[in-house]
């Protein structure tokens, strides 16, 4: 039972750690790192779905009866990885500007400054 779903358990644990990092940490960079982990966990889930026991990478080979793993999840995750890095770049750019205007990248401090500004 455990080994049949081994990758899925790892996916769940990674996802939980990622989500917890995003939500519990006040440092904005740490939040972005958590978000990256959170997304990476989902990649593992999709890729696992496509795996066939004894299969090979989905690139046509000579010979009959070759078992190929499913290419579709790979395609989806290629897209998701791209989306992930785009989000990271945008988030980090915002963090740089936040540091320049607020002088800090700790959420707690920023929220306090925003309250004072009101």
């Amino acid at each position: 039972m455990f080994f049949e779903h081994y990758n899925y358990w790892i996916f769940v644990i990674l996802l939980m750690i990622g989500l917890y990092t995003v939500m519990s940490r006040s440092n904005l960079i740490k939040k972005m790192i958590g978000l990256s982990l959170f997304q990476t966990a989902v990649f593992l889930f999709y890729i696992t779905l496509g795996k066939i026991e004894g299969g090979t990478a989905p690139i046509l080979m000579e010979g009959e009866d070759v078992l190929y793993s499913n290419p579709l999840p790979h395609v989806l995750i290629l897209t998701a990885i791209v989306v992930g890095v785009a989000t990271t770049a945008l988030g980090l750019a915002l963090i740089v500007r936040i540091k320049e205007t607020f002088g800090t990248i700790e959420e707690d401090d920023i929220l306090r400054m925003e309250d004072e500004q009101k």
């Binding site: 978000l35 915002l94 607020f102 925003e114």
Partner: peptide, 15 residues
């Protein structure tokens, strides 16, 4: 504050 609002939205939106 627009910057931080955008960042908050980015985190929520990505989740």
């Amino acid at each position: 504050r627009a910057l931080f609002a955008a960042f908050q939205y980015l985190v929520m939106g990505t989740i």
